[in-house]
Measured scan of single mutants.
Amino acid sequence: MSGIALSRLAQERKAWRKDHPFGFVAVPTKNPDGTMNLMNWECAIPGKKGTPWEGGLFKLRMLFKDDYPSSPPKCKFEPPLFHPNVYPSGTVCLSILEEDKDWRPAITIKQILLGIQELLNEPNIQDPAQAEAYTIYCQNRVEYEKRVRAQAKKFAPS
């Protein structure tokens, strides 16, 4: 494992614990031996107030490669969400998460999670990743928002 990646992720964890947006979660997972795995984080993004996503808490896994922060983490909703920019596998399609697009090593975990929260309610229809959600979003916004509200209710924190 890269010392650069681990040191950056340790800084990220410290900064997150000191200050993070209300309702968001970002925690490194534990290895079988109980030690912390900084390369694999369990996160959760709350649906934004005043949107059909409100009330939901959407679980996301963030996986970092050894060359982080040169390369972005892979962000994957578990379980996958109904959304035009979420692949059926759950992987998020967002330009700041793509090395050859808008990724920059200075982007923080907090910025990534806030960017994904923004994307939930403002899909990028130029870059669809899920045919069904994309089609319904474009053709029947009322039905799309109904499905999103049902999903938010399903993923409401207990």
Rank of each mutant, 00 (worst) to 15 (best):
I4L: 08
E145W: 07
L6R: 05
C93Q: 05
F77I: 03
I136S: 12
P128N: 03
V142W: 10
R147F: 03
P123M: 01
L81N: 00
T51K: 05
Y144I: 03
M1V: 10
D33G: 02
C93S: 00
F155I: 08
K49Y: 09
I109D: 03
E98G: 15
P88A: 14
G90H: 01
E98V: 09
V27E: 04
A15G: 10
E99T: 05
R13C: 01
D127N: 05
L114V: 15
K18W: 02
A26Y: 01
I45P: 07
L97Q: 05
I116M: 15
M1I: 06
D19E: 14
Y134F: 08
H83I: 03
Q111M: 13
H83A: 03
S95V: 03
A129S: 05
G34R: 09
G56A: 05
L9C: 09
R17G: 02
K65C: 11
A5N: 12
K146L: 10
Q130E: 08
T135Q: 12
Y68V: 04
F24R: 02
G47N: 03
C93E: 06
A15V: 11
L9M: 05
P52W: 11
C93P: 00
S89C: 15
G50T: 05
Y87R: 01
L81G: 03
M36F: 06
A10R: 04
P84Q: 01
V86I: 08
I136H: 07
K74N: 15
P21D: 04
P32Q: 14
G115E: 04
P69N: 01
N85W: 03
L60D: 02
C138Y: 00
A156D: 15
A133V: 05
H20E: 02
V92K: 01
E54I: 08
I4K: 06
Y87K: 03
R61S: 12
G50E: 14
D66R: 03
P128M: 03
Y137R: 03
D67P: 10
F24L: 04
S95T: 09
H20Y: 03
D127W: 01
Y134W: 07
S70N: 14
Q151M: 02
E98H: 15
I125Y: 02
T51E: 02
K65R: 15
K153V: 04
T91H: 15
I96F: 04
F58S: 02
I112R: 07
S71H: 14
Y68K: 00
A106E: 04
P69L: 02
P123H: 01
H20C: 05
A156K: 05
E99M: 11
V148T: 04
V142I: 13
L6S: 07
E54M: 12
Q117R: 11
T108F: 15
P69Y: 01
S89W: 09
P32E: 10
L94R: 00
W53Q: 02
T29W: 04
Y137K: 06
N85Y: 00
D67N: 11
G47Q: 06
I116E: 05
R8W: 04
D19N: 07
P52M: 10
R147G: 04
L9V: 01
V142F: 12
R147I: 08
N124L: 00
V142D: 15
P88N: 08
A133T: 05
R8V: 13
D67L: 07
Q111H: 14
E122N: 13
T91A: 15
K101N: 15
Y144A: 00
W16G: 02
E118W: 08
A152I: 04
C43E: 07
L63C: 06
I45H: 00
W53Y: 05
K154I: 08
T91Q: 13
E12G: 02
A133Q: 03
F77W: 01
K30Y: 07
A106H: 01
C138K: 14
A150I: 14
C138A: 15
T35G: 07
